[in-house]
């Protein structure tokens, strides 16, 4: 099931898109028409001038329950949530919140500086900053006056 796409605006991205989403079997999806069929966690990706920003909704996830890793350009986010494990099944009147272990993987575009990535977890929202590689940033190319350069070249004595 293809759930994740790395944007679609750039042809360069299209080649790099790869979907490796995996919902582990014990992730219990919400029901009652709330968020059926959505991958967990839901992820948004933004492009800024000098970075990509991946945001994910991870309510109830603590920093120690979260594991982010990058290997060969593949970003993997893993975590778990077992906040109601202490409650017996028969005590539930309603159960809509997903629980359990989950894992999602994304192929990073080559333009990401993968050693400079950093993440914040605030109030159940993960912000993963993916700085663009220096080569991907727009660079000014200096232009000198061509005629002067030509004259200089002409007066340079040719070594004998």
């Amino acid at each position: 099931m293809r759930v994740f796409r790395w944007g679609s605006a750039f042809d360069a991205f299209r080649d790099l898109e790869r979907e490796m989403d995996r919902l582990l079997h014990n992730v219990h999806m919400t029901h009652e028409g709330l968020r059926i069929g959505r991958p967990f966690p839901a992820v948004n990706i933004y492009e800024l001038q000098d970075e990509f920003l991946l945001t994910a909704e991870l309510p109830g996830t603590r920093v120690e329950d979260l594991d982010l890793s990058v290997s060969n350009g593949l970003l993997t986010i893993r975590g778990s949530r077992t906040t109601t494990a202490e409650v017996g099944d028969h005590e539930f009147r309603r159960s809509e919140r997903p629980q359990g272990r989950w894992e999602r993987s994304f192929q990073l575009p080559e333009r990401v500086h993968d050693t400079a990535m950093f993440a914040e977890l605030q109030n159940g929202v993960l912000l993963l900053h993916l700085p663009k590689a220096p080569s991907a940033l727009a660079r000014q190319i200096p232009v000198s006056d061509g005629s002067e350069a030509l004259i200089e070249a002409n007066v340079t004595p040719v070594p004998e």
Partner: peptide
């Protein structure tokens, strides 16, 4: 958005737990 909730019983009463990411 409609947040997903859990409701369960404890000896003292009911507990309602709701996922509200980004809310303080």
């Amino acid at each position: 958005c409609t947040p997903p909730i859990d409701i369960f019983e404890t000896p003292e009463g009911l507990v309602l737990r709701a996922d509200l990411p980004g809310v303080t």
